[in-house]
Design a protein around this nucleic acid. Structure first.
Lengths: 155, 155
DNA sequence: TATTGTTATACTCTATAACTATA
DNA sequence: TATAGTTATAGAGTATAACAATA
């Protein structure tokens, strides 16, 4: 019922979606501050939790930062006890990064605090809007999982 | 097929939405790099474009940064010709910030580039997912417009 | 005295370039 | 020679604290 134009308005979707996401990001950032984790740090931990241990270069590509930046980020996470480095038995150059139990716990705390604030905001929305957001969750996931063409799939 | 739990899982919306947004933000950030604008800079310009001239303190509160940070950001934007400072005739302490035509043009270029990349990604999604995203746009807007209770409406 | 904004200083995070170690 | 990762250095962006100007 929302989009009276139907399938013909496909061209505007990316523009409107980009604008909407940009505005949502501002809100989201203010929700995420108290955890002490940077946006990239949290996203990296979440990736490690979701996909299991991963090589450092892969993580850097996945999060859209450079290799040195990821090296430093993992060093910080390791020093904080949230992630750990492991040598790869097959290739001596490779470093496997793994999330620790404390990392998982931190992620959970962060999510709980953020969810509480988000819940208060969602409560201000209409049931229709909430339903639309719920219905869009799989699409948001697919969107996040999709890769750019110029940055080929890290597998 | 998406959510086997059905409508009973309303409580999880904030959790799932937060997780989905966090992942999308990572993607979004990698889409926004070539513009040369930081996330906060772009959001501030967008706010100025959307709501018209605004006081510096208001902008800082709105974007969730401190007053000194906003002072420096506006200085950078002014130096780049994207925004301008104006004295308030009614209150000598107040600085009104305004977006320039060049600022608007930069915003448009940024959006165009980002939309192009986003379009390539959206093309990889199923029509159902795209429809779900389109249907969620008003809700995303409402979400971004909603303010937190502990950070009262800047008006 | 309170409010608006700026300046001073320090810290986090990131990028590019140069380097080490393994393949 | 190529690849995985680290170290060195510089810069952007932010916060807290101290300050100047206006109300």
């Amino acid at each position: 019922m929302e989009n009276s134009g139907g399938p013909a308005r496909t061209e505007a979707l990316e523009t409107d979606l980009a604008a909407g996401l940009e505005r949502v990001i501002g809100l989201f950032r203010s929700l995420s501050q108290p955890s002490g984790l940077s946006m990239t740090a949290a996203a990296t931990l979440a990736t490690l939790e979701r996909n299991g241990p991963s090589r450092l270069t892969l993580l850097a590509a996945r999060e859209g930062v450079t290799q040195p930046a990821m090296t430093q980020l993992i060093s910080r996470l390791a020093e904080a006890g949230l992630a750990s480095r492991e040598a790869d038995s097959a290739d001596g150059r490779v470093v496997q990064v793994r999330i620790t139990d404390e990392g998982r716990a931190t992620l959970m705390r962060r999510r709980a605090g953020r969810a509480a604030k988000l819940a208060a905001i969602l409560a201000q929305l209409s049931p229709e809007h909430r339903a639309a957001l719920a219905a869009a969750l799989p699409a948001l996931d697919a969107l996040a999982a999709a890769r750019r063409e110029d940055e080929p799939v890290p597998a």
